[in-house]
Each structure stands twice: as structure tokens, then as C-alpha cells.
């Protein structure tokens, strides 16, 4: 009858400790390592939010930049008139609504059609925003001057990460999460057993989009100057997909396994070889995809399986009996 079983309680306790430890980081260093951590948490939130939808459904979305940009712009447009928390809420609603509209219109597309549409969406939103700004504001850049520093942004992102994980956990154990897993495995079967496939997908796409929008909103003060090329930077969309897939999408925390090592690895590469960054990152990608086709999560699963096997073997259980 309890809310969580024993294993879940243990995981919750560990997670709480990890979050607590992470929240102390700004006291240890508020220079380069904090900035690196801001980037890590940012991508952790983006990748996990992305995985909320794309993990179970297997729909690759490249619309991250669109939601991110909407969030950034919500803050850029309103920072002089409205309080920041309200702007973050507006960002969530705006990107959630956009995700809903897009979802209703396009989630019937699948495979490569959906991928291409979402890529186009980011560009479309960027052009519409630019057009609106030129038409009504007479300029394209927006200034976001606040007193917030890296540590405030870090804490906000960390809190958001916690919310994303809790949401993901709740979704997973809900009917919605179950429905999505069935959709991901076989959409036709899902439809036949009476799941409202479109509704389930749209709801989750909205949740995922809203979180990405909030991330954009939180980061706006960090950039000070908001303009379409940086707010709707398509690189964000690709990086999120790559990192999430490298980590693995099977579990809620799997993207983290991609984000942390690869942010640090890429950082080391760009620090040590500033003139060959693209080349080395490309080589690293190819190596990773070749050697870890199922992401880091796959590696861990393999290791566990082997470990379990050898334990069995040690206990004298004949392999054929398994």
C-alpha cells in the first residue's frame, strides 16, 4: 500500500543525497568548474526531458531548439515588466502549447518524416519570431540584464532537474507511461488494445516541450543578449539527441550517463586541441557509435548480465539450466 517499495525508497534516498551534494558545488568553486557544471545540468535536463517522450515512443525529435528558444524569448520579451518566476511559467505554457499544436498536427507522421518535420519546426519558429520582432519591435536583439549569476542559474537548473526526474518517475508508473511503452513496441497493437495513441503521445510531447522551454527561460539571464541565432541554435537539438542516445534511452537516468562523460570529454578535447575540435569530436563520435551501439546503458547491462552469469557459474549452476 505504500507509495514506494523498498528498492524505490533506496533509490530516492541516493538521489536525494546526490542532489544535495550537487547543490553544494557552487560553494566549492564558482569559476570554470561551476560553468562546466551548469552546462552539464543544462544538457542533463534537456536530454532527460527529450527522453521522456522519445525514449518510450522511439520518435526522434529535433524540435528541442524550438522549445528552448520559445523559453528564452519568453524571458527576453518580459524581463523588464514581469517577475522572473512568472516568465518561467509563461515559458512552460508557451512551449507546452506549441508542443501540443505540433503534436496534434504531426504525431501521425512517423520515422524519418517526423524527424524532418521537427527540424523544420525549429527553423520555422525562428523565422516567425524574427519576423514578429522586426514588425513590432523594430529590432532583433533583446537584453536580459539581471543580477543572477552562474550559481543562481545552476541551482535553478538543478531544481528543474529534480522536477523532471520526479515527473518522469510518476509518468513511468502511470497508465500513460505503460501506454507509451506499448506504443513504442508496436503502435498497431496499442491501438487494438484500445489505447488512445494520439492523445498519449501529444500529452507526453507537451510535458517534454514544457520542460525544455523552462530550461531556455532559466538560461536567458546567462546570455544577457537574446537573438534568434543563439536562442534557436539547431546545434542544441542535435547535441541533445546525440548525448541522450549515447547514454541510452531505456531508463530515466540513462541520458545522464551520456551527458556527464561526453560533456567532460568534449570539453577536454576543445581545451587541448582548439584547432582540431571538430575533427576529434567527429572521431570520438564514430568510435562511440561503433563500440557502444546501445549507449553506455547497454554497456552496463552487458556487464551486469556477465556478472550475474559468472556468479551463477561460480555457484555451480550449469549454464544450460538457465
Amino acid at each position: 500500500m505504500s507509495l514506494m517499495n523498498e528498492k524505490e525508497q533506496r533509490i530516492a534516498a541516493i538521489a536525494l543525497m546526490l542532489f544535495g551534494a550537487a547543490a553544494m558545488i557552487p560553494f566549492a568553486d564558482d569559476g570554470y568548474y561551476l560553468s562546466l557544471c551548469v552546462n552539464i545540468v543544462m544538457y542533463a535536463v534537456l536530454c532527460t526531458a527529450w527522453t521522456l517522450f522519445s525514449g518510450p515512443t522511439h520518435y526522434i525529435s529535433l524540435a528541442t531548439a524550438a522549445f528552448f528558444g520559445i523559453g528564452t524569448y519568453s524571458v527576453g520579451l518580459g524581463i523588464d515588466t514581469l517577475p522572473f518566476p512568472l516568465l518561467v511559467a509563461i515559458a512552460a505554457v508557451a512551449s507546452g502549447v506549441l508542443a501540443g499544436l505540433v503534436g496534434v498536427a504531426t504525431l501521425r507522421l512517423s520515422g524519418v518524416y517526423f524527424v524532418i518535420f521537427t527540424l523544420g519546426l525549429a527553423e520555422l519558429v525562428r523565422q516567425v519570431v524574427t519576423w514578429l520582432q522586426v514588425k513590432f519591435l523594430g529590432s532583433v536583439g533583446l537584453y536580459v540584464f539581471t543580477d543572477m549569476t552562474e550559481k543562481h542559474i545552476f541551482w535553478m537548473l538543478l531544481a528543474l532537474a529534480a522536477v523532471v526526474y520526479i515527473t518522469g518517475w510518476l509518468v513511468n508508473r502511470s497508465r500513460l507511461g505503460f501506454a507509451l511503452r506499448i506504443i513504442g513496441n508496436d503502435e498497431t497493437v496499442a491501438r487494438h488494445v484500445g489505447i488512445d495513441v494520439a492523445r498519449a503521445k501529444v500529452i507526453l510531447f507537451m510535458i517534454s516541450g514544457a520542460f525544455i522551454g523552462i530550461t531556455g527561460a532559466i538560461l536567458a539571464p546567462r546570455f544577457a543578449y537574446v537573438e534568434p541565432p543563439s536562442a534557436f541554435n539547431p546545434v542544441i537539438s542535435f547535441q541533445v539527441v546525440i548525448m541522450a542516445l549515447l547514454g541510452g534511452t531505456g531508463r530515466l537516468w540513462a541520458p545522464l550517463l551520456g551527458v556527464i562523460p561526453f560533456t567532460i570529454l568534449f570539453d577536454r578535447i576543445s581545451a587541448s586541441f582548439p584547432n582540431h575540435t571538430s575533427l576529434l569530436i567527429g572521431v570520438a563520435f564514430m568510435a562511440i557509435v561503433y563500440f557502444l551501439p546501445r549507449g553506455v546503458m547497454g554497456l552496463i547491462d552487458d556487464f551486469r548480465a556477465r556478472h550475474a552469469k559468472s556468479r551463477h557459474a561460480a555457484a555451480g549452476v550449469p549454464e544450460a539450466a538457465e
Partner: peptide, 22 residues
């Protein structure tokens, strides 16, 4: 000491931090 910011704000901010504090 040169760094590539990959035309990205996040990278640029991190690079400035690295130059200043590391």
C-alpha cells in the same frame, strides 16, 4: 592561450571562466 567557442554562448562563457579561474 586560445580556445574555440564553436560560435556558442555556453562554450564562450565556459572558456572565459576557464581562462579566468583555471
Amino acid at each position: 592561450i586560445e580556445y574555440d567557442d564553436r560560435t556558442s554562448n555556453e562554450e564562450a562563457i565556459k572558456n572565459i571562466q576557464r581562462m579566468a579561474t583555471v
